[in-house]
Write a protein that binds this DNA or RNA. Structure first.
Length: 150
DNA sequence: ATTCTCACA
DNA sequence: TGTGAGTA
């Protein structure tokens, strides 16, 4: 009986840093730059799930292999079509900062969003989690390269 | 013992 | 990105 729910935030930043070979400082930076959304206890202490670690590892590898910056990753994440995933009505999306901003993903606009986008926990949202497998980040990278050449 | 935030000879 | 300070 292994109660290992990959979604459960149970790992401390120290554990994650050690197992992924990344400094705690860098992990916090990923958060500051909007790449990840760690679970936070009342105390302010971060906790990470198995999926969180996979995401962080994916980001780390992509930055290293593709030689793009943290801001670059953020722009990739900003390409996630949240309006499609959330079936956002056209009247709403026209006014939505997440639909307009090409630099930052929707969860960094949480304070200015409407409907359930404003109340949902972005950490649990399908938009944020559409990058669970690293392949999907690569797909975004392809789209990014295409749109960047135009 | 660990993590947090903030700052930077 | 690293490292130290001062906490909780």
């Amino acid at each position: 009986m292994k109660p290992i729910d990959k979604k459960e935030p149970i790992f401390t930043i120290g554990i994650v840093a050690q197992r992924l070979g990344i400094s705690e400082h860098t992990i916090r930076m990923y958060e500051r730059e909007g790449l990840i959304i760690p679970f936070k206890k009342e105390s302010g202490h971060r906790l990470f799930s198995e999926y969180d670690m996979e995401r962080i590892e994916c980001i780390k590898k992509t930055i290293a292999e593709k030689k793009i910056s943290i801001a670059g990753i953020r722009r990739l994440l900003a390409l996630i079509p949240c309006w499609e995933i959330k079936k956002c009505p056209i009247e709403i999306r026209k006014e939505c900062p997440a639909y307009i901003d090409f630099d930052r993903p929707c969860w960094l606009h949480k304070a200015n969003l409407k409907g359930d986008c404003a109340t949902n926990e972005c950490r649990e949202c399908d938009v944020y989690n559409s990058i669970k497998s690293c392949d999907e980040l690569k797909e975004l990278l392809k789209k990014f390269l295409v749109s960047a050449q135009v």
